[in-house]
Design a protein around this nucleic acid. Sequence first.
DNA 1: CATGAATGAGCCTTCATTCAT
DNA 2: CATGAATGAAGGCTCATTCAT
Lengths: 220, 220, 220, 220
Amino acid sequence: MGLKPSQPEDPAQAATRRHLLEAASEVFAEVGFRAATVREICQRAEANIAAVNYHFGDKEHLYRAVLKETCRTALEKYPADFGLPPKATPEQRLRAFVHSFLLRIFSQGPGSRHGKLMAREMVEPTGALDAIVKEDVGPMAAVLTSIVGDLLGSSADADKKRLCGMSVVSQVLFYHHCRPVVTRLFPTMKFDAAGIEQLAEHITQFSLAAFKEISKGKKK
Amino acid sequence: MGLKPSQPEDPAQAATRRHLLEAASEVFAEVGFRAATVREICQRAEANIAAVNYHFGDKEHLYRAVLKETCRTALEKYPADFGLPPKATPEQRLRAFVHSFLLRIFSQGPGSRHGKLMAREMVEPTGALDAIVKEDVGPMAAVLTSIVGDLLGSSADADKKRLCGMSVVSQVLFYHHCRPVVTRLFPTMKFDAAGIEQLAEHITQFSLAAFKEISKGKKK
Amino acid sequence: MGLKPSQPEDPAQAATRRHLLEAASEVFAEVGFRAATVREICQRAEANIAAVNYHFGDKEHLYRAVLKETCRTALEKYPADFGLPPKATPEQRLRAFVHSFLLRIFSQGPGSRHGKLMAREMVEPTGALDAIVKEDVGPMAAVLTSIVGDLLGSSADADKKRLCGMSVVSQVLFYHHCRPVVTRLFPTMKFDAAGIEQLAEHITQFSLAAFKEISKGKKK
Amino acid sequence: MGLKPSQPEDPAQAATRRHLLEAASEVFAEVGFRAATVREICQRAEANIAAVNYHFGDKEHLYRAVLKETCRTALEKYPADFGLPPKATPEQRLRAFVHSFLLRIFSQGPGSRHGKLMAREMVEPTGALDAIVKEDVGPMAAVLTSIVGDLLGSSADADKKRLCGMSVVSQVLFYHHCRPVVTRLFPTMKFDAAGIEQLAEHITQFSLAAFKEISKGKKK
DNA sequence: CATGAATGAGCCTTCATTCAT
DNA sequence: CATGAATGAAGGCTCATTCAT
C-alpha cells in the first residue's frame, strides 16, 4: 500500500518529495515530532494532505527521511576538515574541527535544521538515531580522536583520548543546547558568524591549553 | 454559611497536590509536556481526572509548578559546595562544583527528575524558564565564576571568566544531554556513582590543566 | 484509559450507554460493522462523538456489546419453548421451537436487530462469535437435538440427530438469510405474523414427515 | 486520426480485464465490497491503480461484472443435472441437484468465489442481484420445482411445491451460510469432497423421506 | 492509450477541559 | 467541595477517483 517505485524518479514526484522534506524539516525543528502536524507540513509544502502518506508512508517515515537528509546535507556543507590546508598541523585541524562543528549546528535557513533536530533527538531518541550514530557520528568521532591523539602524544591511552575528545565536543554543543539559558544569562552574546568565530577561538585555545598541560604532565 | 479559611490547607488536599506533583514530574520527564496526558498523571497520582484543573488550573500551570519544584529540590540536595570543607582551595571547590552538578542532573528516582526536565526545557523553552534562570541558574553561575576567577588569577577579564566557566559547565552537561549518542558510541561507559566520580575527576583535571596553562600565558 | 467503573451505576451514565447500544444496533444491522460510522451512531443516540470511546473503549468493543445484548434480548423474548403447555408432545415442542425461532430472527424494531446482526456475523465472523456460539447457540442446539431424538426414536445415532436437527434449523434460517432472493422470486410471499405462522407450519410438517418416514425405515 | 475499432479487443487489454476480474473476485469474496480496496485488487492483478476505472468505470461496476461472471462460471461448471444419466428417475435428479448445488457453493480456488459472493449479496443486496435472480436463480428454481412436482405427485399445488423446493434448497445453503457456527459447534464436520457427498446423501434422504410421507398423506 | 501522482473528503481516536451533581 | 460524565476540536491515516503526461 502506498509503495513508491524508487527507480523511475519522475521529476514532478521528486519536486513534491523535496518540498515535503524541506517543509517537514522546518516544522519538525520548530515544534518536534509529536507536535508537528501532517496538515501543517503539507500546507507549507503546498501539497495535499495525503501527500505525506503517499510519498513516505506515514509521519514517522517522513521524520526519518528528514533526519537522515539534514544530517547528510550538514556534513556535506561543513565537513570536519572544513577549509583546511593540505598539510595542516594538529592545532589547525582542531580549530577547523571546532569551527566547522559550530557552523554546522548553528547554521540556519533552508536545509539547515540539523542542529535543532539532533538536539531534539538527544532528548527523545527515536529509532532513527542508531543509523545516524553509526554512519555519521562515528566517523566524526574517529577524526576527532585522531586529532586529540596527535595533540596528547603517543603516551595517552584510548580512554583518555575519548574523554578529552568529549571535552572538546561538549564545549561546542553547549552553546547550541543551552542557548536559551546562555542568552538569558548573558544577553550580550551573539551567535552570528563573528560570535561563532570567537567561540571557536576560545574553545580551541581552552582545549589546546588543557592538552598542552596534560601531555606535559604525562611525559614526566 | 461556613466561611472557608483559605490558608490552613486541608491536609488531604495537600496530599493530593503532592501526589500530583510527583506523578506529573515522572510523566513530564518521561514523555515531555505535550505527550504527557492529564489522565495518565491523575491515574498515577490516584487522583480524579479533574484534579489537575482543580488544584493547578490547567496542565501548563501544573508543569510550571513541577519544574520549579524539581529545581528547588535538586539544588537543595546537591548544592554547589556539596561536601566541601570550610576552608577549601579553589581546586577543591571546582571539583566539588563539578561532582555535585553531575550528581544533580544524573540522580534518578522520586523527586529527581530535574535533569530530564531541564534538558527538555532547553530544547523547547517555556515561560517557566525565565524564573528558573534568574532564581537558580544565575546564583550558580556566580559561584562558578568566582571559582574560575580564583583559578585564572586577577588578570582575567569578565568575558574570559564567563567563557571558561561555560567550558567547565559544558563538559558536565554533555554527558547528560548527549547520553543517547555517548552510550551508543562507547557502550562501556557507565553512569553509576563510580562512573560519575571518574567523569568528575576527568572534567576537573582537564579544566584545571587548561586554567593553569592559560593563567601561565596570561602572566607573561 | 477510558476505563469505566462498572459498579456505581450512575443512572445518567446508564441511559447514555443504553441509547448508544440501541443506536449502534440499528446502524450495525443496517450497514454492517465496517460501514457503520461512530458519528452516525452518536448522532442517533444524541450523544457526543466521543461517547463511544468513553463508554465502550472503541468501535469494536461497542459492536461486541451490541451483539451480545441483542442476542440475550432476543432469546429472552422468544425462548425455545415459547408458549408451550407444560406437558407438550415432541411434535408440539418442534412446532414451538420452529415458530419461536422464526419470530426471533424476523422480529423488527427496537431491540430486535438480532437476525440481521447474526446473518452478518455468519458472512464475516468476528471474535465475538465464539462466545455467542458457546453461550447461546449451543444450549439451543441441545434443546433441538433432544426434540429430534424424541421424534426419531432411540435407534438414531448422534450423527443422524445432528444432521436432522440442522435440516430443521436450515429451513428456518433460509427465509431470513435468502429473503432478497425469495421476495424477488415469489413476490407474493409475506413475512408478517400470518406469513411466518404459515412458514412455521410448513417447516414443522415437512420435518415431521421426514422424521416419521425415517424412523419407520430405521425400525425395520 | 486513427479510428479505433472498439470490438476486436486488444489482447493485452483483454488479459488485464481478466486478471482484474479474477483478482477482484478474490478480494471481494475475502473481505466484501466495502472493505475491498481498488489498490489491493490492482496489485494482485499486477495492474495499474487506475486500471479499474479505465476498464470498468468504477469499483461498483467492477463488482457487478465479477458477480455476474462468477455466477455464470459456477453454473457452467456445476449445472443442475451434473453427471446425470439421460433417463434419470426423479430421485436421481434430486440427488444430482443437491450434490451439484453443494459442490457449486463450496468449490474453492480461482474462478470459484461464487458461494462467498452470493452469501454476501444476501446480507447486503446490491443492484446486481435482480439480474442474477432473473437469469440464473429463476431457471434453477424451475428445474427444482419440476423435480419436486414429480416426487410429490400431480396433486400438489404450486404453493406446496414452492415451499418444498425451498426446504430442499435451504438445507444445502445452510452448511455454507452457517459454516462459522457449524464448525464451532461440531468441529469434526469436514467440507471436503467426501464430507460434501455425505451431506448430499443426508439432504437427499431427508427430503425424499418427507416427500414420500407427504405424498402418501395427500393421496388419501 | 495507459499511467501514477495527486486529490480531498471522511473515519476513528485522543485529549484537555467543563459543569452539573 | 470534589467528582467524573460529557464535550468538541483536532490529528493521523485511508481510499476511490481524477487528470496531466
